[in-house]
Amino acid sequence: MAVFSYQAKTKDGKKLKGKIESVTKRDAMEELRSMDLVVFKVEPMNALLNKDITLRKTLKEKEFIIFLRQFATLLNAGILLVDSVELLAKQTTDSVLMVALETLASDVQNGEALSVAMTKQPKVFPDLLVHMTHSAEVSGRLEEVMDQMASYYEKQYRIKKKVETAMTYPLVVGTLAIGITIFLLVFIVPIFSDMFASMGGELPAITKLVLNLSNFFKDFWILMVLVVLLLVLASQRLLKQERYAYSKDVFV
């Protein structure tokens, strides 16, 4: 049995917070709902430290696209909005999407508009989808707009996968080339260095450069690894900033 913390509300509007033991998160939510509670949040707790476990999980794009397509199909078939969201929450295999949809269904059931409920979860529902949903609510074309948004995000997903596939080959080749070069400098070149030293004479400038690089890599390989790690971390941090991300996109 696992311990879960929850936030819920009674039919009278009273907010509740507490803990519940259950086998899975889904079972915990079902048990709370059987108590006539409107569940807002259920999170696993650390049994040893009795603190919430914070796991960084991201929504899978493919699951999100499938949700939009199925959502449009259910609405087009005449299924009620709340029933459609709850049904999709039970069917999805993505834990992030499941929690988001369960919260979305609860908010809509409490009288909020779908677009308003989506704004509470910006990490799951993009701004474009929220605005398009609001327009669809006004015009009464929700199922049509959801189908269009599914096609839009599906096209984006395919383009992204094509770019990733195109970038994989040069990235692998470049990594192998750098690895082989470092291997030669660290393990092979020193053999020739000893041979050149025993022969005597003046070495060409390019040969001296290669030997110096080999000695540098042998003596400061730890420093080189740290520099590479720092550059990777710094680039990731910079790319999270909008202006640097935009510059990167323009350059690429």
Rank of each mutant, 00 (worst) to 15 (best):
residue 38 V to F: 15
residue 177 A to M: 10
residue 107 D to K: 14
residue 87 L to I: 11
residue 161 K to N: 14
residue 144 E to I: 05
residue 14 K to E: 13
residue 233 L to P: 00
residue 60 K to G: 06
residue 123 K to I: 03
residue 76 N to M: 03
residue 2 A to M: 08
residue 164 E to L: 11
residue 108 V to L: 14
residue 93 T to N: 15
residue 168 T to F: 13
residue 116 V to H: 07
residue 210 V to T: 15
residue 168 T to D: 02
residue 89 A to I: 09
residue 150 A to Q: 02
residue 59 L to I: 12
residue 95 S to M: 13
residue 124 V to A: 05
residue 100 A to L: 11
residue 139 S to V: 03
residue 239 L to H: 00
residue 128 L to P: 01
residue 27 D to R: 15
residue 66 I to L: 11
residue 147 D to A: 01
residue 12 D to A: 15
residue 113 A to I: 08
residue 215 N to R: 05
residue 160 K to T: 06
residue 82 V to A: 11
residue 238 L to E: 01
residue 165 T to M: 10
residue 23 V to P: 05
residue 102 E to L: 10
residue 179 G to R: 08
residue 230 L to D: 00
residue 233 L to I: 00
residue 198 S to F: 03
residue 171 L to V: 14
residue 35 M to R: 15
residue 142 L to Q: 00
residue 10 T to P: 07
residue 75 L to H: 00
residue 252 V to F: 12
residue 90 K to G: 11
residue 20 I to T: 09
residue 251 F to R: 11
residue 182 I to S: 05
residue 137 E to Q: 08
residue 202 E to Q: 09
residue 72 A to S: 13
residue 106 S to M: 07
residue 85 V to I: 15
residue 227 V to C: 11
residue 250 V to S: 03
residue 27 D to N: 15
residue 148 Q to M: 03
residue 228 V to Y: 07
residue 200 G to K: 03
residue 44 P to I: 09
residue 239 L to A: 00
residue 227 V to E: 01
